[in-house]
Computed example of a mutant assay.
Amino acid sequence: MKFIADITIKGPETPIEYRDPIFLIGSCFTEHIGNKLQDLKFNIVQNPHGILFDPISVCNSLNSYIERSHYNDDHLILLNELWQSWSHHSKFSGTNKAEVLRLINESQDRANAHLKTARWLIITLGSAFSYRLVDSESPVANCHRAPSQWFRKHMCTIDEIVTALDNTLYRLFHFNPDLKIIFTISPVRHLRDGVIDNNRSKARLLESVHHLVNKFNRLYYFPAYELVIDVLRDYRFYDIDLAHPNYQATEFVLDAFRKHYISGPSQDIMEQIQQIVNARRHKPFQPQTQAHRQFLHNFAVKAHQLQQEHPYLLLQDEIEFFKAS
């Protein structure tokens, strides 16, 4: 008897290697993937604008990295005692305007440099809903808890989504001819939109993305959404809010990503690095014992040897930690 539906996942002909720079952008589920890759010492940059949900905000942000756009005083507003940008997540907000601009523009420079050399771009779309300022009709990436009457909520049509992404893709391929792109749709359910409108929103994203994947030969679709919604298909795989996939669901999705999108040799390295990362996080009951000192020495040697074999790995912090401890 089968308890889980089968799903076919088609990975790229040339999968991700450890030495490949990776750029990630999009919804909060982007950061589940990005944080895991970062923990395992892949060379990544993720969400230089902070978390973004809708395709218009994602495209505007990517275009700004291509252009290496810099922000100035005119791009900030003073709201709730903080300087904020309509284009950025609130993690950039602050009481010091100059500091906010410095952080934003440094992030722009890092994004431009990394996107120029990236081999992979992972785009995770969360919602087809876009919020527009009533006064100007300008789309915003984050409402920063401003009064709701300041905004108009708009569900993007499939044509709008495809046009915005299509234009950005052409610019990306001109900017970085070696770039390959993986699209995912976030399995996070936007219940504030209501169950029906959440499903309509996800459907528009799915249709738009598959239209583009069928158009370009270096676009891929990883079914994070289907793995949670159709394969796991149970509320026990969601957090208490019934909207966000829980740890088990996230690990299930990440394991499928690893199997189908990362090369075999790189998967072997991932397992070795996971052991080193776990060893660094280990909290000993008796840190002064000879056994613990030997434990640290063994992992210092292991990390050093792995770094020597693969110089592109970023293991210096772990090596220094084991030696210092």
Rank of each mutant, 00 (worst) to 15 (best):
V213G: 04
I158F: 08
D166I: 03
S208Q: 03
Y225L: 03
N246L: 03
L24T: 07
N167V: 13
I66K: 02
I273N: 00
T124H: 04
N199A: 08
T163Q: 14
Y225M: 00
H244G: 06
E207Y: 10
I44K: 05
S136D: 14
P311A: 04
S263P: 06
I185T: 04
Q305L: 12
T124W: 02
V100Y: 04
K10Q: 12
R218M: 14
S136R: 09
E13F: 10
H244P: 05
I51T: 11
H154R: 09
Q272L: 13
A111I: 01
F216P: 10
F3P: 07
L79M: 08
H260G: 03
S263C: 03
A291G: 12
D6K: 14
L121T: 07
T168V: 09
N198V: 09
D268H: 13
L314G: 13
D54L: 07
A113W: 13
S186W: 02
P15Y: 12
T8I: 13
S85V: 10
S57A: 04
G26H: 06
W83E: 08
A300H: 07
F173A: 03
N217H: 15
L296I: 01
D73F: 10
G264H: 14
R152Y: 12
Q305I: 11
E207M: 15
V253F: 05
L79S: 07
L227T: 00
A146G: 07
L62W: 00
Y312M: 11
L125A: 06
L103Q: 14
I33P: 06
Y131H: 10
V213C: 06
A146P: 05
L313V: 03
V45F: 06
L212R: 02
D317F: 10
R236K: 09
D6S: 14
T95N: 11
S93N: 05
M1Q: 11
F257R: 04
L296M: 04
Q288G: 14
G126Q: 01
D159L: 09
F151Y: 01
D255I: 11
F285K: 15
P55H: 03
K283C: 15
A111Y: 00
D109M: 13
L314T: 14
R171F: 13
R218I: 04
A98L: 12
R258P: 07
E137R: 15
P177D: 02
G50H: 02
V195W: 11
H211M: 12
D234E: 10
Q307Y: 08
N142K: 05
T184I: 03
S69R: 15
E17Y: 12
E226Y: 00
V277T: 01
I269A: 07
R102F: 11
D159E: 09
N199Y: 12
E318W: 04
T184Q: 03
I262D: 01
E17A: 11
F173N: 04
S201P: 06
D54Y: 07
Q307L: 08
F92P: 03
V228Y: 03
Y312H: 09
Y247A: 10
V45G: 05
K302E: 10
V58Y: 02
N167I: 13
H310N: 13
L232W: 02
D178F: 13
A324K: 12
